[in-house]
Design a binder for these strands. Structure first.
Length: 892
DNA sequence: ATCTATGGCAAGCCGA
DNA sequence: TCGGCTTGCCAT
């Protein structure tokens, strides 16, 4: 929770310069050369050496669950179909006899049979007998097209009996392949063998040894917790394979330059396709067209370039080439490249479904032969954005992410695609496919490993993990554990009916409950500051205080006295909550093992790289593990759990602050999980940490020492100079992304100067120079010397909603966006709007069409002032005085 | 087209 | 003119 360096997963990224020489042109193949049916059918081996289970799906034709296994030596995907006869089902509170009386159920084409099963109901804390209604295929359970059993059962029962209260139906919204994974306790991303047609889990000797070492660190904890740690450790200690894969990108020449090609219609030709392999093989498929010039762009000598006279041949050859790769990467392939290729091949060239390796779903596209990972969805994920990549990229575009992470921008050109020369188009196309591949390859294949690790944690196929958010990940491992323990998975409304709402009042209007405490800072400059924080505060609280939907407001009288501070909630003292167990053990594993391992420089390179990935993956999951309980999008939504977590958080930090004060330590500031202590002695720090562990079971540690810290009276707004150099700047306007570069740079100069200061005595000299910096920036503004164009003065604000949705107010960036729209620019949600402040109404203008003479200089001076005031207050300086002096000088 | 939470600041809009 | 509200960005 504390702002640890979220960039720790970035190593140095080697710059890529390509050898550029001549083009090799192969002869265009003829359509008659191709075989009738180019798609090679997958293998279903009876025996298979250890292979990674990467995907589980459902084959509608065969009506079985079907698995994809990646064999790391041949680097191929093999298939295995279920041979256990597992079938889809739902659970209901009706008895088997009652269900059998429902004719619409028993006569449903998908109905198979009913059976009574015993389950543990975690909400009632008792064993219950429920009825399992088994179906022949998943559509019978929850299909939309015809009536499905989960709807029919309650409807028909009510019609038949006239009873107002409908019978309960459980677990009917779980996707079938997920249910299959749970019931067979499958470990996605782990090694399996096929032996005589059967699927067998492989245990690796090497990781078993490490697991022993890990468990040694957990002496004294109870068996249940130790088992949970061991399960996680086994999943996370298994090494990652090399993923053979290819980046795919297509170019379509639209007849009308400004029109975005429609993947449903696929009316325009596919004129170029690039494949960029993890083996660095580069393939270009180019369509010959009338009147297109060769152009003079130099392509890499090792690029394999093929020109095609006929588009259908191009598509067929492309499909064959794609099938060589078990993993295919795209950027927005779900919504564009793959449906486009599919519809183009099918509707315009009469390909049969069996001749196209692509399967188009409602929201996603997949491959028959392997896996499709759409990186747009992965990088769109907010948690990935923030916790794995430290907010390094902001727009979710190939260009923005490629530039931010790889330093590899897209190639720019002026003309529409239809008018580019062959080589221009090919160069552009190839670069896109290269960026796509490299987004998964940089830093020793970090992204592939991250997806693999998340797949193991969540028990989800890699394809799903890359597309879905944290709430799905967390839901899935909790569901999995429910099934493993034969627990009934509750419906959300059942949880809410029993656990009700929240009892605290949020500070912010419209929020559901009260959150964290932020301590008022002590303004000024403070030397020698220790920042202590709780490692993973909220996950620790969930662990230590046994929080979960089962344990909050449980149905035992004797637990009611175990109150959560500041609330009327109580927590169970008899049973352990699953969330507490799973999140708690994962948290401990991160803190006690992976944090150290990430720092260990003696490990071999491949292991170090893996030990870099795992803490990032855990960070993403743990950071989200509290928030999901307060989100209705989470299937185990339980506001009291979120509320209790926050309440214990306030309790823990308040106690800590009180204890620090009783030890005569001045507390300068604190936010949620941290306390900033003025000049504490090493002994004081140790006493506080020991006290925390002993009295609250919470691990409090010194996270960093500041040589000095600067606070104004603002919360979430400070600057700290680290003992060993380096500056933390938090929340200051001068660092915010929307602020003009001119002001940002000025702020950066100030920051650099402050970093030099070692002692209080050195401050005086620094202050003089800071005044000089400010004077200089001020004068340059007044004298309009910021550059040839107003670019340096542009604000950059993201459009949070469609333009039409701004009805209550019209913020400045919206005004600018509307001006852009008027001159023919397409404006969408998420676009970054750049504008400057001008003197004439409406006071703003898009930077693209603004000139220097229009700039409202005084507005910028005011900005400069408010930005610097956040620091100057604490330094005892005054902006007006600083520039007032200047005025005097100029006057003289 | 999809979604972990609450707390806090700055700026600007807009109606009383 | 003032103060509440909207918006975006950030801290944790």
């Amino acid at each position: 929770m504390a702002a640890q360096s979220s960039l720790d997963i970035f190593g140095s990224i080697p710059p890529k310069k390509k050898e550029i020489e001549s083009i090799e042109i192969q002869e265009a193949p003829k359509h008659s050369d191709l075989t009738e049916n180019a798609v090679v059918y997958p293998d279903y081996p009876q025996n298979l050496p250890p292979s990674y289970l990467v995907s589980v799906g459902y084959d509608g034709k065969k009506a079985v669950a079907t698995l994809k296994l990646y064999e790391p030596l041949s680097q191929r995907i093999y298939f295995w179909d279920d041979n256990t006869g597992h079938k889809p089902y739902l659970l209901t509170s009706l008895t088997p006899q009652e269900v059998e009386k429902l004719s619409k159920v028993t006569q449903h084409t998908g109905y198979d049979h009913v059976e009574a099963v015993e389950k543990y109901d975690p909400l009632l804390d008792k064993k219950v007998t429920v009825t399992k209604v088994v179906a022949k295929d998943p559509l019978a359970i929850g299909g939309r097209q015809y009536g499905c059993l989960r709807d029919i059962i309650p409807e028909e029962y009510q019609v038949l009996t006239g009873i107002a209260e409908p019978p309960k139906v459980w677990e009917s919204f779980i996707r079938y392949y997920q249910s299959y994974i749970y019931d067979n306790d499958l470990a996605l991303g782990m090694l399996y063998e096929i032996k005589d047609g059967n699927l067998v889990r492989v245990r690796q000797k090497s990781s078993e040894q490490t697991i022993h070492q890990i468990l040694d660190k957990f002496s004294g904890v109870n068996k249940e917790f130790l088992d949970a740690v061991e399960n996680w450790a086994r999943l996370l200690e298994s090494p990652a394979p090399e993923f053979r894969r290819v980046g795919l990108d297509i170019e379509v020449a639209s007849a009308v330059a400004t029109r975005v090609p429609d993947p449903q219609k696929a009316d325009d030709p596919v004129v170029c396709v690039a494949l960029y392999g993890s083996d660095r093989r580069k393939q270009l498929f180019i369509l010959k067209r009338e009147g297109i010039a060769e152009g003079n762009k130099k392509l890499p000598t090792d690029a394999e370039i093929t020109y095609f006279e006929e588009e259908n041949v191009l598509l067929q050859k492309l499909f064959e080439a794609i099938m060589e790769y078990p993993f295919v990467l795209t950027f927005n392939g779900d919504d564009f490249d793959l449906p486009y290729l599919y519809n183009r091949a099918k509707d315009h060239f009469g390909f049969k479904r069996t001749e196209i390796p692509i399967e188009v779903g409602r929201r996603t596209c997949s491959f028959k032969h392997g896996l499709h990972i759409d990186l747009y969805k992965f990088f769109f994920n907010r948690s990935i954005q923030i916790y794995a990549f430290g907010n390094k990229y902001r727009d979710i575009t190939l260009n923005a992410i490629g530039t931010a992470i790889l330093g590899l921008p897209k190639i720019e050109f002026q003309n529409p695609i239809a008018e580019l020369s062959y080589t221009e188009l090919a160069e552009y196309n190839l670069r896109d496919s290269e960026i796509t591949l490299d987004l998964t390859a940089f830093n020793d294949n970090l992204v592939m490993k991250l997806i693999l690790a998340m797949s193991r944690i969540s028990h989800m196929p890699m394809e799903d993990v890359s597309r879905q958010g944290v709430s799905r990940w967390i839901r899935n491992f909790l569901y999995h554990e429910h099934r493993r323990r034969n627990m009934l998975i509750p419906n959300m409304e059942d949880i809410l009916a029993i656990k009700g709402g929240t009892t605290t009042t949020a500070m912010i209007k419209g929020k559901k409950y009260k959150g964290a405490i932020v301590v008022d800072p002590v303004p000024g400059v403070h030397f020698n500051v220790a920042v202590m924080d709780f490692a993973s505060l909220y996950p620790s609280i969930i662990k230590v205080y046994n929080l979960g939907y089962q344990t909050l407001l449980c149905n035992h009288e004797e637990c009611k006295s175990n109150k959560v501070p500041e609330t009327t909630h109580w927590v169970c003292t008899k049973n352990k909550a699953l969330e507490s167990l799973l999140i708690g053990s994962l948290r401990d594993l991160r803190v006690k093992w992976y944090k150290q391992k990430a720092k260990d420089k003696t490990l071999p390179a491949d292991l170090r790289s893996w030990y870099n990935v795992i803490p990032s993956a855990l960070k993403v999951v743990l950071n989200a593990s509290y928030g999901v309980f307060g989100s209705p999008a989470f299937n185990l939504y339980c506001p009291p759990v979120a509320e209790a977590t926050a309440a214990y958080g306030r309790h823990v930090i308040t106690q800590t602050i009180n204890k620090a004060r009783s030890l005569d330590i001045e507390v300068l500031y604190g936010d949620t999980d941290s306390v900033f202590l003025k000049k504490p002695s090493p002994e004081q720090v140790e006493i506080l940490a020991d006290w925390s562990k002993k009295n609250m079971g919470m691990e409090l540690e010194v996270e960093k020492w500041y040589r000095y810290a600067v606070f104004s009276s603002r919360k979430k707004n400070y600057l700290g100079i680290l003992k060993d150099g380096g500056v933390d700047v938090k929340g200051m306007t001068g660092k915010k992304r929307h602020i003009p570069p001119y002001i940002k740079k000025a702020f950066y100069e100030l920051e650099e100067r402050l970093e030099q200061v070692q002692t209080p005595a050195e401050f005086e000299e620094a202050k003089k120079e800071i005044k000089q910096i400010i004077r200089d920036k001020y004068l340059r503004l007044k004298q309009r010397r910021w550059g040839e164009t107003p670019d340096e003065l542009a604000f950059h604000v993201v459009l949070g909603k469609p333009l039409k949705a701004y009805t209550k107010t019209t913020p400045q960036h919206v005004k600018a966006a509307r001006m852009l729209e008027k001159i023919g620019t397409e404006i969408k949600v998420g676009d970054l709007i750049s504008f400057v402040k001008v003197t004439k109404e409406p006071r703003v203008k898009p930077v693209q069409i603004a000139t220097n003479s229009e700039i409202d200089v005084d507005k910028y001076v005011a900005y400069l002032q408010s930005t610097f005031d956040q620091i100057l207050d604490a330094l005892g300086l005054d902006f007006d005085e600083i520039i007032g002096l200047t005025k005097l000088f100029r006057f003289m």
